[in-house]
Every structure is written in C-alpha cells, then in structure tokens.
Amino acid sequence: MLRKISMIIAAGLLAAPLAACGDNGGDSGSGSGSDSGSEKIVLGFSQVGAESGWRTANTKSIQDSAKEAGIELKFSDAQQKQENQIKAIRSYIQQKVDIIAFSPVVESGWDTVLKEAKDANIPVILTDRAVDSTDTSLYKTFIGSDFVEEGKKAGDWLVKEYQGKTETVNIVELQGTTGSAPANDRKKGFGDVIAADPKFKIIASQTGDFTRAKGKEVMEAFLKANPDIDVLYAHNDDMGLGAIEAIEGAGKKPGVDIKIITVDAVKDGMQALADGKINFIVECSPLLGPQLMDLVQKVHAGETVPARVVTEETTFTQEQAKAVLPSRQY
C-alpha cells in the first residue's frame, strides 16, 4: 500500500515539470528541431523569482522584447532556489535551445552545469547578477547594472549640489543587506566620489536590509543620535521611503531639511521624488530585455560581444520625475 502511494507521488513529481515544459513550448508548435539557424532563435531563460516589483518588471521586459525581436522564449521561474535553476538549465540543454540566459540566484556553484552547456555548444549569457566562476569561457557575456557606477552617480549629484559651499555636510547612509553586491558596491562608489572633498562627512551608516520598515526604524535612531543631518543616502527607494516617514515624524521636511538620494527608481520612489520628498534618484533599470535580445542575436550569429555589458541607465531629478512618472512601467 505504502509503496503504491509513494509510486503515485513519484510519478506526479516527474509529470509536473514535463507539463510545465509543455506549457512553455506554447505558440510555435514545432520548437524541437530548431537547430538549423534559419528558423526562430530559441532562448531558454531562467529567472530568479518574482520577489519584487523590480523583478516582475524585469521578467516582463524580457518577455515583451523577445516577442518583439521574434525570438522564441522558454521561460522558467526558479523561485529563489539554485537547484530549480540548475534543473531548468539542464532541461534547456536537453531541449537543445540555441542560447541560455539566466539571472543567478547566488554567485557560486555554477561551474558544473555551465560546463555541461559549454560541452553541448550552447552559449550562455548572464543577466543582472554575476557568477564567481574563475573560468570566464563558461559564459559569453554578462549584462547588468554597474552598482559601483550607481553609487558614483549619487555621489556626483551631491558634490554638484553642494558646490561652492564650505560648511560641513553631515551624511547618513542606509545600506542594503549586509554583504550583498549592491550594498557593497553602492557604498563604495558613493564613498569614493565624496572622499575627494573633506567637507562631506558620513556620520552614521547602518543596514536597513533594503526594506521600508527597517529603513524607518534605523532612521528614527539616526535622528535621535545626530541632531544635525543634512543628507540621507539610501541604497534603495524602499528604505528611503521608510526614512521619509521617520523624518516627517521628527517634525522635519524630507527633501528640504534633509536632502535625500536613493537608488532604483521604482514607482513609489518616483512618486516621492515628484512630490519633492526625495531630491535625486539613480536608476537601476530592470528593463534590460531589448539589450539582451540584441546580444542573443549577435551571439547566435557568431559575432563577438563584449564580456561585460552595462544596462542603459539614467538618473532622475524632481522635474524629470514629474515628466516621466505617467509612463513609468514599474
């Protein structure tokens, strides 16, 4: 009896991913024998998950631009688990897709599966996040944001804003999750730029875990410990939004009494920017779909591509935010 039940369960487990693959194959009907090259390019893409609005926009951008570029997209969601992602990549190898692209959930542990892809002659493109493999021949290129550059842009704005003034500028910093690449790099880029001028002083720097609630709690403590804060630099919009509430609770005006710089440019952040509560946002764009499809076509045609492609990103002032807010996708 028990054996029968476990067999049924095992059969169900086996059938589930098969069914999912069938769904993904979708529109073209005969996606199997597309090795000739003259047909549609088949791209297998493994996404991290759907953990944030940023990620959802990222997924949508990839799906939309694949359709536009006439590339057949096989899409799978890893739900934040590396083993799911490895499974997905293996199934793409078996299905003999033309190109595999994925956003690695974590940095390490990819060598084996990437080697399998290489042996099967399927080029791999990394998106948004990097892997720590020492063998760079395992993937063709890495497209994604340059977090150090984002921090630098934030610093540049600050330097320009306080140009010609001599008094000390007291800065507090809300860092992202301790040890994560965006937190480390955004801190470094910002720190490097403002280090050139001794009037800029980071008087407090704590992690807010990229969340609104922590951002608010930490900012409350900052406000109590340091009565004289001129600038807040938050590693993402959400922490900045939480901090805005803390600043308002302290009877100060965010954006006026304390100038605020954040990174990301999600919709809520852009709204606050347009409302004058944030002064400057450095974009970290999830909309890398068109650039990715461009790379896919080039790699498929055998052209050489740069090993590192930086996402096209911009920055927003309050006036720019007002202008673009109605057409913002995420």
Binding site: Q175, T178, S205, Q206, T207, E217, V218, A221, F222, A225
Partner: peptide, 15 residues
Amino acid sequence: LTTTIYTIGVPPETT
C-alpha cells in the same frame, strides 16, 4: 538592544 545598536552606530558587519 536594537535601538542602542542603531543609536551608537555599531558597524552593520558586526551588529
């Protein structure tokens, strides 16, 4: 304890 850590500015790496 949490508020103290934020107020006195313990570096996040050692929090």
